[in-house]
């Protein structure tokens, strides 16, 4: 009897089944809790464990007292900063010009297209170009390589924001007597700020955490923070590697905070 009731209840539930149910998200939420959040928690735990699995602050201490680590971090930040500025300076005009062309989105597609080709083989070819030009490999070539690799990430969001700006703002500015430069500085540039901030985030983070690119383009003389994280884990130094990953994560979260703030008010949650 009870079984029958239960069965009927079940059928009733299926009949009342509506797509307007949030339960559909639960499997995915569970999956993300397990494979995204739990690994980050384990990273956090490992940062406080020594090799015998005892609680310790030594990993933090040894990271910040070792001048080599601090040097790698500051070099990465410097390379990241220069790369980001270069991407912005080179990429903004491209995005701005393309936002005025009717064929702009096709050209943006052409700019993104090389990213579909494995970055290792492109970096290898770039290294060959440096060799043909007799350029000494070092920080300079690393920066050029980073700009080459990550500039599409700058142009994409900039182009999206710039094409979405209502042209009547610029027209209004002109009607009110602003010249071309003033219109750009007072109207277009501030309105494109969300795109600029997305672009900065999407270039800066991958640059400092880049892996393999800097080694290839500097004969292993320049290491990015990402490379040195990898090295620690390759040498089984999980504790200090976790500390470095956490530092990287803090950068990610800070930059994202600003990105989300800039995008607030805009419905566009999408990164592209």
């Amino acid at each position: 009897m009870k079984a029958k009731e239960f069965f009927l209840k079940g059928v009733g539930k299926i009949k009342n089944f509506r797509l307007t149910r949030k339960v559909f998200a639960y499997p995915y939420v569970l999956f993300m809790l397990i494979f995204v959040l739990a690994p980050l928690v384990i990273l956090l735990v490992n940062a406080f464990l020594d090799t015998d699995q005892n609680f310790t602050f030594d990993n933090f201490k040894s990271f910040f007292t070792d001048s080599v680590n601090v040097r790698v971090l500051s070099l990465s930040l410097a390379v990241g900063l220069i790369t980001t500025v270069l991407c912005l300076v080179i990429g903004y005009p491209v995005a701005y010009i393309l936002s005025k062309w009717s064929s702009g989105s096709i050209i943006v597609l052409l700019i993104i297209l090389p990213m579909w080709v494995n970055f290792l083989i492109r970096t290898y070819a770039l290294k060959a170009i440096f060799a043909l030009l007799d350029t000494t490999l070092g920080v300079g070539t690393v920066i050029i390589g980073m700009v080459y690799n990550f500039i599409p990430y700058m142009i994409m969001p900039l182009h999206t924001t710039l094409t979405n700006i209502d042209p009547s703002y610029a027209e209004a500015a002109k009607d009110l007597g602003a010249n071309g430069v003033q219109t750009f500085l007072k109207s277009t540039l501030p309105l494109s700020l969300p795109g600029i901030i997305s672009g900065i985030t999407m270039v800066f983070i991958p640059t400092i955490s880049a892996f393999a690119i800097s080694g290839m383009l500097s004969n292993n003389t320049v290491l990015m923070f990402g490379d040195s994280i990898n090295l620690r884990f390759a040498n089984q130094l999980y504790g200090i590697g976790s500390v470095m990953s956490l530092i990287m994560l803090v950068f990610v979260l800070i930059l994202n905070f600003f990105m989300n703030k800039a995008n607030k008010g805009e419905a566009q949650k999408n990164l592209w």
Binding site: F35, V36, A38, P39, L40, I42, L43, N46, T201, I205, P206, I208, S209, F211, G226, I229, N230, F233, Y238, G241, S242, S245, M248, L249, F251, V252, N256, M259, L271
Partner: peptide
Amino acid sequence: PIVNSEIVMAVSLMLF
């Protein structure tokens, strides 16, 4: 996962 640095995701998954 989209905004996180790939290396952090890779090592956290590896530890997990």
